[in-house]
């Protein structure tokens, strides 16, 4: 593994003889120490959560948000070097708005993941740049309704030439839109996930996520349950570094008929507090001081 002294780790555009790009691997190291980020994709939507280690008592609780909104229906959370994450988010916003300018409609989640993957990968190719020191988890919802064209004025014909295709026309349920969850790594590699985790506590988080059996076609985890699981998993993943205090931040995106109407929003305070309470209850060492901890959870969300 070690590359010290071989010289192949000094430049981005140079492979080692065994086909590795050490700069990218060092970037992954930067991520491995970041706060744990997770994403849960269920039928009704996506939940994103991040463990924010409190590095200073002087920081304002609830300020310095880590999960960003892109367009209206996408959230991005990064682990690793935060400024790199901000830049990547900014790029994602530019990609989303340029897609809208071109196609007059919101960017599909998979297309945005592709654009970001390509962007991150480009930073592994040149000696003049370093790779991104972040792994990004991106969650969103492609509308399950009819895709609107930005600025459209009418509804179009309901039948006949140029009319709409309905379920009964083709004799089956037309499948449109749905949830999307992607993780983009410093190499530019991006995959779609049912549940994604990165950062320091990723191993514990991943094994918890696996227990949820999200990939099963019969899985019926609701979005509210997913929020509670996400909170619990962040608490579980924090176990290994529990000498440090942390703040939980959670956002979600539901389907059009759900609580966020297809938008990426912060989890509302009530649900957030309930999720934190449940998470603490599930953790043996938090269990004894329920009420006090619940209040603390409330403080964490205030701006």
């Amino acid at each position: 593994m070690t590359s010290i002294g071989t010289g192949y780790d000094l430049s981005n555009s140079v492979f080692s003889p065994d086909g590795r790009n050490f700069q990218v691997e060092y970037a992954v190291k930067a991520v491995e120490n970041g706060g744990t980020c997770i994403g849960i994709r269920c039928k009704e939507g996506v939940v994103l959560a991040v463990e924010k280690i409190i590095v200073s008592k002087l920081l304002k609780p609830g300020a310095n948000k880590r999960i960003a909104t892109v367009d209206r229906n996408v959230g991005i959370v990064t682990s690793g070097l935060l400024p790199d994450g901000r830049h990547l988010t900014s790029r994602a916003r530019d990609e989303a708005s340029s897609w809208r300018r071109t196609y007059k409609s919101p960017i599909p989640i998979n297309a945005l993941a592709g654009r970001l993957g390509g962007y991150v990968q480009a930073y592994t190719l040149y000696s003049s740049v370093r790779p991104f020191g972040v792994t990004a988890i991106m969650g969103g919802w492609d509308t399950e309704g009819e895709l609107e064209v930005d600025g459209q004025v009418g509804t179009g014909p309901t039948s006949g030439g140029g009319g709409k295709i309905n379920d009964h026309d083709i004799g089956e349920k037309i499948s449109r839109g749905g949830p999307g969850l992607y993780m983009i790594e410093p190499s530019g590699q991006y995959w779609g996930y049912y549940g994604a985790a990165t950062g320091k506590g990723r191993q514990a988080a991943k094994s918890e996520l696996e227990k949820l059996d999200l990939a099963s076609p019969t899985n019926n985890l609701t979005l509210n349950e997913a929020v509670k699981e996400a909170a619990r998993i962040i608490y579980v993943a924090h176990e290994d570094s529990k000498d440090k205090e942390f703040e939980l931040e959670m956002t979600w995106i539901s389907h059009e008929g759900g609580p966020t109407k297809g938008r990426h929003e912060e989890v509302p305070k009530e649900l957030f507090d309930a999720a934190v309470k449940a998470a603490k209850k599930a953790m043996p060492e938090y269990d004894d001081s329920d009420d006090e901890q619940g209040e603390e959870g409330g403080d964490q969300m205030q701006e």
Binding site: D71, R72, S97, R100, K104, D150, G151, Q152, V153
Partner: peptide, 12 residues
């Protein structure tokens, strides 16, 4: 329609 899109992007 142009103004609609402009204001939507502002809102985003």
């Amino acid at each position: 329609q142009y103004l609609d899109r402009l204001l939507q992007s502002l809102d985003i």
